Computed example of a mutant assay.
Amino acid sequence: MLCTARTADDVLYHELRATGRTVHRIGNCVAPRKIDHAIYEGELAGRELWTPRQRAIYDGELEQAIS
């Protein structure tokens, strides 16, 4: 099977954006690409959701969260 005409699938992105939601495009929504690119773009999008202080894990916090 050949796949020669790869295109981005961004229909859902445009539908959600039209409702006024804040959305980020990553992975194949932007353009067909490898999984490592999608994972990296997902990480970057996730980091934008929190402030630098919220992103950090401080001494003892992880232990408290899992106990």
Results as ranks from 00 to 15, higher is better:
25 R>Q: 14
64 Q>K: 15
23 V>M: 02
9 D>C: 03
29 C>R: 03
11 V>M: 06
21 R>K: 15
51 T>Y: 06
61 E>G: 06
18 A>E: 15
57 I>S: 10
26 I>Y: 09
14 H>Q: 09
6 R>E: 03
2 L>F: 12
54 Q>D: 11
34 K>E: 09
56 A>V: 03
14 H>W: 09
49 L>W: 07
19 T>D: 12
54 Q>L: 11
44 L>F: 04
61 E>D: 15
50 W>G: 00
39 I>N: 02
14 H>D: 05
25 R>K: 15
43 E>D: 01
20 G>H: 11
60 G>R: 10
18 A>L: 02
7 T>L: 00
2 L>I: 04
61 E>F: 04
44 L>W: 12
21 R>W: 14
43 E>K: 07
15 E>T: 15
49 L>F: 07
31 A>P: 00
16 L>C: 12
64 Q>P: 13
20 G>W: 11
10 D>N: 14
25 R>H: 01
32 P>H: 00
44 L>G: 08
59 D>K: 11
18 A>N: 12
58 Y>V: 02
37 H>R: 11
22 T>D: 13
44 L>S: 08
67 S>F: 04
30 V>N: 08
17 R>Y: 02
45 A>R: 03
44 L>E: 11
19 T>C: 11
13 Y>Q: 02
61 E>C: 10
56 A>C: 04
63 E>V: 13
2 L>G: 13
34 K>C: 01
57 I>W: 12
8 A>M: 02
47 R>E: 08
38 A>P: 02
60 G>Q: 11
53 R>G: 12
27 G>I: 02
38 A>H: 01
14 H>E: 06
45 A>H: 10
40 Y>W: 07
40 Y>V: 02
51 T>H: 05
6 R>K: 08
26 I>F: 05
51 T>L: 05
37 H>Y: 12
19 T>M: 13
38 A>D: 01
13 Y>C: 01
2 L>C: 09
24 H>Y: 15
19 T>Q: 15
49 L>E: 06
42 G>N: 07
40 Y>F: 08
32 P>Y: 06
5 A>P: 04
65 A>M: 09
66 I>T: 11
25 R>L: 04
16 L>S: 02
22 T>M: 04
54 Q>R: 15
24 H>W: 13
40 Y>L: 09
12 L>P: 08
55 R>E: 06
63 E>A: 14
31 A>F: 05
